[in-house]
Simulated scan of single mutants.
Amino acid sequence: MPVTLLNPDGLMKTEMYRQVAIATGTRQVHIAGQVAYDAEGQLVARGDLAGQVAQSLRNVSIALTAAGATFKDVVRLTFYVVDWKRELLPDFAAGIERVAGELKFVPAPASLIGVSVLFEPGVLVEIEATAVVD
């Protein structure tokens, strides 16, 4: 496995993601921003941040699989969330926890960026991923 995830001493401890990813693979996989669309292009979980986070992560998983990777190969996640405020954290975390349990993954180092709008009304979250594989 080319990726080791760490939460080093001296940094805030969190179970939502790891602070550091060490990658030793040679092939990079960059996943375009994934939103909560199903295979037919229909928005899933309209108005439900947890549901959209979960569906977007499922879509990231599909893209990773197509590239010969898994969440174990991910070194970076970037979340863009519409109208972010700290009060949304429980719903956001619930979406991650739902899929982490389904797909058996520990989220890699991540950034959460609040935005005023994404490309289409109703889309609440977009997730980019970078993976490294042998």
Rank of each mutant, 00 (worst) to 15 (best):
A110H: 01
I62M: 10
K85F: 09
L77Y: 01
V53C: 12
T65N: 12
V123S: 05
E87M: 06
D9Y: 08
G51F: 14
E126I: 01
T24E: 15
I96Q: 01
A129H: 02
D38S: 07
V132T: 05
V81T: 14
E97H: 15
M16Q: 06
K13S: 12
R58T: 05
V99W: 01
M12R: 13
F79M: 07
L118A: 02
P107L: 07
L124W: 15
A108E: 00
I62G: 09
A21H: 05
A54D: 10
D83C: 06
L6H: 15
I31P: 03
A69L: 03
P109E: 04
A45H: 05
A100I: 03
Q55H: 08
A129G: 08
G101Q: 11
K13G: 10
S116D: 11
I96T: 05
V123D: 05
V29I: 15
R46G: 04
Y17N: 06
R46A: 13
A66R: 15
T24Y: 08
P109I: 04
A93C: 08
S116Q: 12
A131F: 03
V106C: 03
T70I: 02
N59C: 11
A36D: 05
I22Y: 11
D73E: 11
V75M: 10
A93V: 13
R76D: 14
T14E: 13
H30P: 00
A131Y: 02
S56M: 01
E126A: 15
I113L: 15
A32T: 09
Y37M: 10
L103A: 12
A39P: 02
A110E: 00
Y80C: 07
R58C: 10
G68K: 01
E120G: 07
P121N: 10
Q28P: 04
G68H: 01
G25I: 01
D38E: 08
K104Q: 11
S116A: 13
V44P: 03
K85G: 12
I127K: 01
L49Y: 08
V133Q: 04
V132A: 05
E126V: 04
Q28Y: 09
A129V: 03
R46I: 08
R58M: 09
A32L: 14
L112R: 06
D134W: 05
T65S: 13
G41D: 03
I113V: 15
V117N: 12
Q55F: 00
L89H: 07
A39F: 13
S56C: 05
F105D: 04
V75K: 12
S111G: 13
L77W: 00
L124Y: 14
E120D: 11
L118K: 01
S116V: 03
A32F: 07
V60N: 04
F79A: 09
A94L: 02
I62L: 13
T65L: 11
T70S: 14
L43C: 07
D48M: 06
L5R: 15
A21G: 11
I127N: 05
S61Q: 13
A100R: 04
I31G: 06
N7A: 09
N7V: 07
M16P: 00
A50Q: 00
A66S: 14
L11R: 04
V82W: 11
A110V: 01
T4G: 06
T14V: 13
L118S: 02
Q52A: 12
M1C: 02
A45E: 07
V82M: 03
H30G: 05
K72I: 02
